[in-house]
Amino acid sequence: MIGEKIQISDEDRCEWCHGDELYREYHDKEWGVPCRDDDTLFEFLILEGAQAGLSWITVLRKREHYRKVFDNFDARKIAKYDDSKVEELLQDPGIIRNKLKVNSAIRNAKAFLKIQKKHGSFSEYIWSFVNGKTIHNHFSSLKDVPASTEISDQMSKALKKEGFNFVGSTICYAFMQATGMVNDHVFSCHKSSQH
């Protein structure tokens, strides 16, 4: 029937998102979709750093609140945060209250703005690591998906050199997956060949 919604079962998705509606929606609509918008790329970079040592679902559940208290991830505003703003954020139970991670968001905002100035856009710069094109992997299961690659190693080193932190190779690879620089939807997933 025209307009009928097709039901997709968890068996037709990557196994990491099974059993949670927020995770499923993120998997189906965002994860692995090529993103070239600077503001969205910056948001993902900050959230991936916030996730270090935690599960992604923890961050995903807090994302809307992050957007509210971090000025919708406006790098220009975040770059100007002072000590009192940091203290205010550290009192907020709606975010991950880690001083290093909060300070990292400010530091990364400043580095992000420098990259934009130097390269015209952050998107141009970050996508250059994959020559502007999504790398399509064809893994058969989650256990085959790497935690990092040679490219994420290079990206991590380059970002650190530019002044970023909380950008280790594993964080960079998760960022690449989230923003569609790599398509790591497993072979059996309904999203594996849609990009």
Rank of each mutant, 00 (worst) to 15 (best):
M1P: 11
E4T: 13
K5I: 14
K5D: 05
I6N: 08
Q7E: 14
I8M: 06
I8G: 04
C14T: 13
C14W: 13
C14V: 13
E15N: 13
E15Y: 12
G19Q: 04
G19R: 03
D20Y: 10
Y23Q: 10
R24Y: 02
H27I: 09
D28N: 11
D28A: 09
K29M: 11
K29E: 15
W31M: 10
W31H: 09
G32D: 08
G32N: 07
V33S: 05
V33Y: 06
D37G: 05
D38H: 03
L41T: 07
F42K: 00
F42D: 04
E43C: 05
L45W: 04
I46E: 01
G49F: 05
G49P: 07
G49T: 07
A50C: 12
A52E: 10
G53I: 13
L54M: 15
W56P: 11
V59L: 13
L60W: 09
L60C: 08
Y66K: 02
R67T: 04
V69W: 01
F70Y: 05
F70M: 06
F70K: 03
D71K: 08
N72V: 03
D74T: 03
R76Q: 13
K77L: 08
Y81M: 00
D82A: 00
D82M: 00
D82G: 08
D83G: 00
V86G: 02
Q91E: 02
D92G: 00
D92E: 03
G94Y: 05
I95V: 10
I95K: 00
I96H: 01
K99T: 03
K99D: 04
K101M: 04
V102L: 00
S104Y: 09
A105Y: 00
N108D: 05
A111G: 02
A111V: 01
K114F: 01
K117N: 07
K118V: 02
K118Y: 01
H119R: 03
G120N: 03
F122L: 05
S123K: 06
E124Q: 07
E124K: 14
I126A: 02
W127I: 02
S128W: 01
K133F: 00
I135D: 09
H138R: 15
H138K: 15
S141V: 06
L142S: 14
L142W: 12
L142R: 14
L142V: 15
K143N: 14
K143G: 11
V145A: 12
V145F: 12
T149F: 09
E150A: 15
I151G: 04
D153P: 03
Q154N: 13
Q154V: 08
S156P: 07
A158D: 15
L159M: 15
E162M: 06
F164A: 03
F166Q: 04
F166R: 00
G168I: 12
T170G: 10
C172S: 07
A174T: 14
T179Y: 03
M181A: 03
N183M: 11
H185Y: 11
C189P: 07
C189L: 08
C189A: 09
H190I: 14
S192V: 08
S193R: 14
H195Y: 14
